[in-house]
Simulated scan of single mutants.
Amino acid sequence: MGTMEMMTAEKLELLRSSAFELEHAQMYDSSYSEHERAALALETEIERSLVSISPDGNSEESRRIAQTQINIHRERQRALRPHLESGSGVEDEEGRECVFIPAPNHWGANGDLDEESGSLSSVHNLLTWQANYSPLSYTPMYDELPSPDIPYYTMLDPSQPPTTYHLHRTREWSTSGCRKFIYTAREYSDKYALYMLEASHRGDSQVTSADFCRVAEYPQPCITILLSGIDKCDHNAAYKSRCIHLRGPFATPTPIKEYPDRQQKIPWSPRRFTYGGRRFVWKPGDSNDDVMPETLYEFQRDWAKPGSRTGKRCDDAQERKLVWGEKKRKGKVESYTIHFAGGVDQVFREMLLASQMARQVVLFTAID
């Protein structure tokens, strides 16, 4: 365990951030050392809380968070070890480069919101800002926005491979009758967590909110999720469709809103939303498996299905999948893999991932 040296919360947060930022700068040895310092400092915080006589300093939840952060730093050390100067270079034993955690403040998602990036998220950011704040009828930062008549997938770099995450339920326990679901997304090797989603659930209620975090920032969420409730709670409630609102790193507090064609009906999808001036629809990934990750398509037009009395709709969705998933089984344990078309920017990818993980957590409440 670490020494009992005092460290303020602000200094500890800077130390944690530094470890991830050095990793992104490919300063692997320095990053490894900072992860070690952060883990030791967090162990000291746990020691101090256990001997504290102050109610504020003796919080079981605070210790749980600190232990999770320690596990994250130790895991990143294992990921970095092959890349140290004393290791095998910039690739691991499988010949793959180090997979970065999106770091706070300086890399990754923040740049996707800049107009110079040309990403769909930058277009969404601009359109949201203009709709809420700009008195102008034109777009001052673009001469011309990409036309929504051009399929989104044609704007993606075809040389980039799909981005893959492996999804796992990692923990569940009871506190005051409440179960906490912790769901992680690991990178392609299925070894190291990149994202976490947490949601609480009581047996007599529904999951109505969740927090989606980059592990570099845990427990600070980068996306907060709200789910609409179900009027009539029964054994099928978890399988009934609902609205999902996702609030992320956007220019205004306006959330991304996903609306099902038929609310409070089985299954959850089709569910539609607009992003960057384009329209997208989630459709069932497997009509025989409600928990399978959904498949995402772009569409331009939808209309009521002739003869439907329950709100079913048709659309002109493109054939090209933007997101799709599959199930893996080891013994009695099931996990899921989700793929994103290569070139989808990080902000958009995180929003889509948060939506799928939140939906699955609700479905898991019916299974467990």
Rank of each mutant, 00 (worst) to 15 (best):
M4G: 07
S121G: 12
Q220A: 14
R279L: 15
G111S: 04
S59I: 00
E187A: 04
Y183H: 02
V344M: 10
R76C: 08
T365G: 05
R64A: 10
H124M: 15
L80P: 04
A185Q: 06
S122G: 13
L84P: 05
G118D: 11
M155A: 15
P284F: 01
R202M: 13
Y138F: 10
P158L: 03
T128P: 04
E34H: 07
Y165F: 15
F299P: 02
P253Q: 08
G57K: 02
E115A: 11
L194D: 07
R359E: 02
H106N: 12
R63D: 12
N58M: 00
E34C: 09
F250T: 11
V344E: 02
R247I: 10
K328P: 00
L322T: 04
R76H: 12
A341H: 02
L145A: 06
M351T: 10
Y195L: 08
L22T: 05
R349F: 00
I150D: 14
T8G: 14
L80F: 06
S122N: 07
C213P: 05
Q318M: 03
R309A: 08
D112Q: 07
R271P: 03
V51D: 13
A9R: 14
G331W: 12
T365F: 14
G95H: 01
K257F: 02
G343I: 00
R179C: 04
Q206L: 09
R63A: 12
P249L: 11
P284Q: 14
R262Q: 11
V291H: 08
G277T: 06
L126I: 13
E5T: 06
W268E: 04
R320N: 01
E294I: 00
D29Y: 00
A251Y: 09
C243Q: 13
E217M: 10
N236G: 05
E144N: 09
G111L: 02
K327N: 04
S18E: 15
S33E: 13
R78C: 07
R279T: 01
I46N: 13
G89S: 05
V123P: 02
S33D: 13
P82M: 01
S287C: 06
G276I: 11
V215I: 14
P284E: 14
I70N: 07
A19R: 01
L113K: 14
I367R: 10
P267T: 15
